[in-house]
């Protein structure tokens, strides 16, 4: 039997008015795989991630996640999205709620847990990101790194099958990046399937199974981190890698 991919995106096109942002992207991800997506700003990385949980409606193509056809109008999209966690560059924590409230909201309103159950699960999730003692803090009382870890807890509390990260450390002060990467690394060790848009090359080298290079709405090439970083096949990849390594 052929191994089934947990994420299976085929022929994704996305137009924003006259702008052709994704020009036929195919992305298959295996269970427990960590895929790194790199590429210049504006190449369509965020749009691709957002098409996977249908925050953005692809103009054409198909997206199947964990056997669910995400683009089928009959799919209960809210139910399907519980299985796909997403972490944003700007954290997007709810500022009017405590860390615990941020994590329990979907547990209660989407997963249908009682308040007590949701609290227990949320505290467990906060513990996994090392913030058990910050449950009652509001986002304003937390550092950027802590906020991003709460955002990760908000996603993993729903026990997703896949996690999408869109530049999770780009908005952080350099000294706070490590704590977030540490949480991502431990998440990886539990076998979570992850698609990560990021330019943290060190992390990619250590943790990624595969690196995907995107440019101008297309996947230009992909392969194991060593191959892509040391020995890219395409001139554009070489140029991009050279550019970020000079930073």
């Amino acid at each position: 039997m052929v191994q089934k991919h947990i994420v299976e995106a085929r022929g994704i096109h996305k137009h924003f008015g006259p702008l052709h942002v994704l020009k036929g992207v195919d992305l298959q991800v295996d269970e427990r795989e960590l895929v790194f997506v790199i590429g210049p700003s504006g190449s369509g990385k965020s749009t691709l991630l957002r098409c996977l949980n249908r925050l953005e409606e692809p103009s054409s193509g198909s997206v199947v996640v964990d056997g669910i056809d995400m683009l089928d109008p009959k799919t209960d999209i809210n139910h399907a999205r519980q299985r796909i966690g997403m972490v944003f560059q700007s954290f997007n924590l709810y500022p009017h709620m405590t860390a615990l409230g941020n994590v329990t909201l979907a547990l209660r309103k989407v997963a249908g847990k009682s308040r007590a159950e949701a609290d227990t699960l949320a505290r467990k999730a906060l513990e996994r990101v090392g913030l058990a003692d910050r449950a009652d803090h509001t986002p304003g009382q937390l550092s950027g790194g802590q906020q991003q870890r709460v955002a990760i807890a908000r996603s993993i509390a729903l026990e997703p099958r896949v996690m999408l990260f869109d530049e999770p450390t780009s908005a952080l002060d350099p000294e706070l990046v490590g704590s977030v990467l540490e949480v991502m690394r431990s998440l990886r060790e539990t076998g979570m399937t992850m698609i990560v848009v990021s330019h943290e090359m060190g992390f990619a080298r250590n943790a990624a199974d595969r690196v995907v290079f995107m440019d101008d709405g297309l996947i230009v090439e992909q392969g194991p981190p060593a191959a892509i970083f040391e020995n890219p096949a395409h001139e554009r990849t070489r140029a991009f890698i050279g550019q970020i390594q000079r930073h």
Partner: peptide, 27 residues
């Protein structure tokens, strides 16, 4: 209220109405 708030809520499975009620309106 920044759009990212709605996106975060929707990404966890909240419906449009739930995102409005629990996330957007209070802010």
């Amino acid at each position: 209220v920044p759009n990212g708030q709605v996106e975060a809520a929707r990404s966890t499975g909240l419906s449009r109405m739930q995102a409005m009620r629990y996330v957007v309106l209070p802010q």
